[in-house]
Simulated assay, not measured.
Amino acid sequence: MAQTPMHDRLHEIEALLSTLGKSHPSEVQAFMNFMGKAEAGPALSLKQKELVNVALSVAAQCEWCIAFHVKQAVHAGAKRDELIEAGFLAVLMHGGPAMMYMTPLLNAIDEFGLPETVKA
């Protein structure tokens, strides 16, 4: 089975962290520690945190972030409509450029196996 673009983004993240982890271990470890602390708060569920991260990823126009956080959100139980709604919140706050990044969001949702939902 051929790799898909969003899966490629995940591999690129792993490769980047591996490369930088060898040449700049203290910086990478500091970032990973910060990320762990920032995501550790108890007020939001893991799914809620990942939906926020999806919205921020779309607003930041980061395909790597979109791939990573959609996958994490799916594993945390997020549904297709929740992910798309998070994306539209980013569009609301960031405008037209964020709308264009709904493309990699939809690609990631499709690649990570969430079916279309039928609107009533």
Rank of each mutant, 00 (worst) to 15 (best):
S57D: 01
R80F: 09
S26P: 07
Q3H: 08
E27G: 14
L10F: 03
V118I: 09
A60S: 05
K119S: 11
M102H: 14
G95I: 09
E27M: 05
E39G: 11
E12H: 03
I109D: 02
L10Q: 08
R80P: 02
L83F: 10
S23Y: 13
Q72K: 01
A15R: 01
G96E: 08
T4C: 04
L92W: 11
K47Y: 04
A67V: 00
A76F: 01
A40W: 11
A59P: 02
M35I: 12
P25K: 11
K47Q: 14
L83D: 03
V28C: 05
K79N: 10
V54Q: 00
A86F: 01
A76E: 09
P115A: 14
L89M: 15
L44P: 07
A60N: 04
G77D: 13
G87Y: 02
L56M: 15
K47A: 10
A67Y: 01
V52C: 12
K22T: 15
L51Y: 10
V58A: 00
L89C: 13
L89P: 12
K22Q: 15
P42S: 13
S57V: 00
K71Y: 07
E85T: 15
S57M: 02
A2Q: 10
G41K: 03
V28D: 06
F31R: 04
N53I: 00
G95V: 07
C62Q: 01
A67T: 00
L83K: 07
L17V: 02
L44F: 14
F112V: 04
A90S: 13
S23V: 14
A73E: 07
D8N: 06
M100L: 14
S26I: 12
M102L: 15
D81E: 14
K71L: 06
M93L: 15
F88V: 05
G87Q: 11
L83A: 05
A98Q: 05
A76C: 06
H94D: 10
P42C: 04
E27L: 13
H69W: 00
V54I: 09
G21N: 05
H11D: 14
I84S: 08
I84L: 15
P42K: 10
Q48Y: 04
H24R: 09
I109R: 06
S23T: 15
A78K: 02
V52T: 11
L17H: 06
L20S: 11
F68C: 01
G87A: 13
P25V: 05
G95Y: 12
A38G: 14
A86P: 03
L51A: 11
A38P: 12
H69L: 01
E116R: 15
H11Q: 12
G95C: 09
L92M: 13
K47M: 10
K71G: 00
S45N: 09
H75W: 02
K47C: 08
M32V: 10
A78W: 08
S57G: 11
E14Q: 09
N107M: 07
K22P: 07
A90D: 04
Q3E: 10
G41E: 10
A15I: 00
G36D: 13
E50S: 03
E85H: 15
C62I: 00
